[in-house]
Every structure is written in C-alpha cells, then in structure tokens.
Simulated scan of single mutants.
Amino acid sequence: MIKTHKGFIYSMILPAAVLLTVLSLFPLFFTIRNGFTDYYLLSKKSAHFIGVKNYINIFKDAYFQRALWNTVKFTVFAVIIETFIGLVLALFVNSLHKGQSLVRTLLLLPMLVPTVTTALIWQTMFSNNNGIINQMLEFINMTPVNWLMDVKTAFKAILVIDIWQYTPLAFLLIYAELQTVPQSQYEAADIDGASYKDKLFHVILPDISTGIGMVLLLRTIDTFRLFDKINILTRGGPANSTATISQYIYQYGTKNLQIGYSAAASVIMTISVLILASAYVIKKFKTDIKSLG
C-alpha cells in the first residue's frame, strides 16, 4: 500500500518537474536565439540571423556603457552598505536582554512596504517644493536640493532608498544566523578572557559567514536587476545618471520593440550577474563537496 502510494506520488512529481524545467529553459533559449537576430516586433518581415551584431552595437553604445557602470556601482555600494548596517543591527538586537521581538519587528517594517509604495513615499519626501527633507534643510538655513533631478544627487537618492528598504533583509538573514551560534562558544571565550572584539572576529563572524555570504549573493542578484525605483522616480535621468541595464532593456524591448537587441542586452545582464555571484557560488560548491567527502 505504501509502495503504491509512493509510486503514485513519483508519477505525479516527475512529469511536473520535467514540465517546470522545460518552461524554465524555453524562455532562456528563446532569448538567446533572439539575441542573434534583428527581430523587430512591428516588422512585417521575419527575423534574420545577424550573428553578434547586436552585441557589438550594445557595447559600442554610450548609453549602455553608462547604464552598465551605474548598475555595477550601485550594486557594489548598496550590497556593501546594506550588509554592514544589517550586521551591526543584528549584533545590536542580539545583544538586547529585553525587547528583541519589538525591535526586530520595527526594523523589518521597511521591507514589508511594496517597492512602488516605497518609491512614491520617498518621491514625496524628496520633493523640491514641499518635501520634508528640503523643509528640514530650510529650517537649518540650507539651500533646498532638487534631489531626483540633479545629476549630483539623483544616484545617491536612489541608493538611500534602496538601503532603507532592503537593509532589513540583510539584518533578518544575519540575525537568524546569529541564533545558531552555540552558547558554549561564548562561554569558552569568556573563560579564556576574550574581549568582545576577539569574540566578534574569532567566534561570531566565522560562525555566521554563511549567512553573510547569502546576504551578499541575494542582494547582488536583486540589486543588479534594479528597475522599478528607477522607472518610477527618474526614468534613468537626469542625463542618464541613474540609468541601469534593466531600464536599458526596457527602453529598447518594451518601448522601441527591438526584441532582438533587447534580448542580447538581457543575455549580457544575466552573464554579468553570474560573474558577480560566481565567487560565492564557487566557494559554497567547494564547501559542500568537502562536507560530502
């Protein structure tokens, strides 16, 4: 009876797994294939194979070069700052003897707000006319700033918004990892007369390195795909100072309907994400292999 039940489950799971795999691979194959064509959605002619022409044109495009640089720069700054602040907050909350649940809940609130809502809230706060930030500047006799329309401040403003929204995710993952550190290690360090600095660098950080690595990986992948905040707040401006690869793909794929060209840009974006995340993936793979051995 049990064997029959298991056989029924496997007969249902296997086709579903195959179907999901096919559904996942088909869009990838379709995108890669289109990247080598001149596919234009409104063209009456069928798409023609043009080799790597799209890729050559993309890398020659000054707009793409700026978008790529902005994306990489934004990813590096956002991931490092969010991970560091998340680590500090996790260590602080973990050290509290009372009120951990309340503080933890309050810190997670920004992450629960939808991205569109977050962008609109900060758009109001950054408003050049009656935004609360400029009102505070005027209160201390400083000149108001057009935060989202100034080349010098637009990129930094988007960065601040992303840090505010996703630092709680870094905090949550690192805090959860801190809960797994054995209490016996703290006690042994106390017996040896270790300072908090010694415990931090020789006990805590080595034990939560997996959690920190996961934060770096997830935030790198997610931040590199930054689009919604940019599209709502600046649309890549001013003067392409906040343009990203995702926004570049949207511009050519959805607006200009150049499917082949945008597909090539999508492939470049995917490869870039894999390169950025490869260090952690390779390290994790080697660790898992050693553990199996």
Rank of each mutant, 00 (worst) to 15 (best):
I2Y: 14
I9V: 15
M12Q: 10
V18Y: 10
T21F: 10
S24E: 13
T31P: 00
F36K: 05
F36S: 05
T37Y: 02
F49E: 02
I50V: 14
N54E: 01
N57A: 05
V72G: 08
F74G: 02
T75Y: 01
F77Q: 02
A78W: 05
A78S: 10
I80C: 11
E82T: 10
T83R: 00
V88Q: 07
N94S: 12
S95Q: 11
L96R: 06
G99Y: 06
Q100C: 03
V103S: 03
T105W: 03
A119K: 07
I121V: 12
Q123M: 11
T124V: 11
N130H: 09
I132R: 09
I133T: 04
E138D: 13
M142C: 05
T143W: 03
T143Q: 15
V151Q: 12
F171H: 01
L172Y: 10
L178W: 04
P182Q: 02
Q183M: 13
Q183T: 14
Q185A: 15
Y186H: 10
Y196F: 10
I204R: 00
I212T: 09
G213I: 03
M214A: 11
M214W: 02
T220N: 04
I221Y: 04
F227M: 01
D228G: 04
T234K: 06
G236N: 01
S241P: 03
Y248K: 00
I249D: 00
A264C: 01
V273D: 10
V273R: 14
L276M: 13
A279Q: 07
F285E: 13
T287F: 15
